[in-house]
């Protein structure tokens, strides 16, 4: 028996909206520590890693480990039927072929349930080591969204370089070139409006803007986003989802042929 209840159901709606265009399907792995997902996009250059902790839910029960194969487009269709203020409960029997989603309005006068058909999905788990990065940059998620959106209108790839001067995003295309530099800035009173640059060594890597732009669909989940960069390694774009957990996007760098 698996059961997970979250009062702030809109978080689940936002999570699925953030993932569904990158990955069409994947396994929700549930255990007594929580719910996780690892899924790659069809070209295998980007990976979504979602971790929701058991204690972040208002109620969580999982009697045995299960992998529930989810089609995210279908899950999104069902979650669109939930109100933004609804409490959402996920339920499945052991070895079930469906996941039940129950939506309760705050006034308790409307309760609905939907069954999502589960799929059998062969998925490859990657071992992602904990490691120190050359540069870690925390910035407002709205700022990240703006940068990648603006640069996507100019070019296809972005060179991200972190130095002691700041973090610079550069692109070029048919219309010309663009450079946006952010400096370490802890002046704003609100922590979520600050930019923190933790630099161990300068690093510069090139990435496809299409993916970085797609990751910014997670903006509604968190006021800040963390970018982690190390030479010759995928970038990590991480959104902390309150006390519930995090969603991380990994993207392989563009390298010279």
């Amino acid at each position: 028996m698996f059961e997970a209840r979250i009062t702030q159901g809109s978080v689940l709606k936002k999570l699925v909206e953030a993932l569904k265009e990158l990955v069409t399907e994947g396994n929700f792995d549930v255990s007594n520590t929580g719910l996780s997902l690892q899924a790659m996009d069809s070209s295998h250059v980007c990976l979504v890693s979602l971790t929701l902790r058991e204690d972040g839910f208002d109620h969580f029960r999982c009697d045995r480990n299960m992998a529930m194969g989810i089609h995210f487009g279908n899950l999104s269709k069902i979650l669109k039927c939930a109100g933004n203020e609804d409490t959402i409960t996920l339920k499945a029997e052991d070895n079930a072929d469906q996941l039940t989603l129950m939506f309760e309005a705050p006034s308790q006068d409307r309760i609905s349930d939907f069954d999502l058909k589960l799929m059998s999905i062969e998925s490859e788990h990657l071992g992602i080591p904990d490691q120190d990065y050359s540069a870690e940059v925390k910035l407002p998620s709205s700022e990240y969204q703006r940068i990648v959106r603006d640069l996507t209108s100019i070019g296809d790839t972005v060179l991200i370089s972190a130095t002691k001067e700041g973090i610079k995003f550069s692109t070029s295309g048919d219309v010309g070139t663009a450079n946006i530099t952010l400096r370490h800035n802890t002046t704003p009173e609100k922590p979520e409006e600050q930019t923190f640059i933790d630099l161990k060594e300068p690093v510069a890597l090139t990435f496809a803007l299409r993916y970085l732009n797609n990751f910014s669909k997670a903006t509604p989940l968190a006021p800040q986003v963390k970018l982690s960069l190390t030479k010759d390694l995928p970038i990590v774009v991480e959104y902390q989802v309150g006390e519930l957990g995090s969603v991380r996007f990994y993207l392989a760098p563009k390298i010279d042929d």
């Binding site: 790659m40 295998h44 392989a252």
Partner: peptide, 13 residues
Amino acid sequence: MHQEPLTAYFPSA
């Protein structure tokens, strides 16, 4: 330029 698949960076667990 090209991209290597993520499996080139992270081993299968």
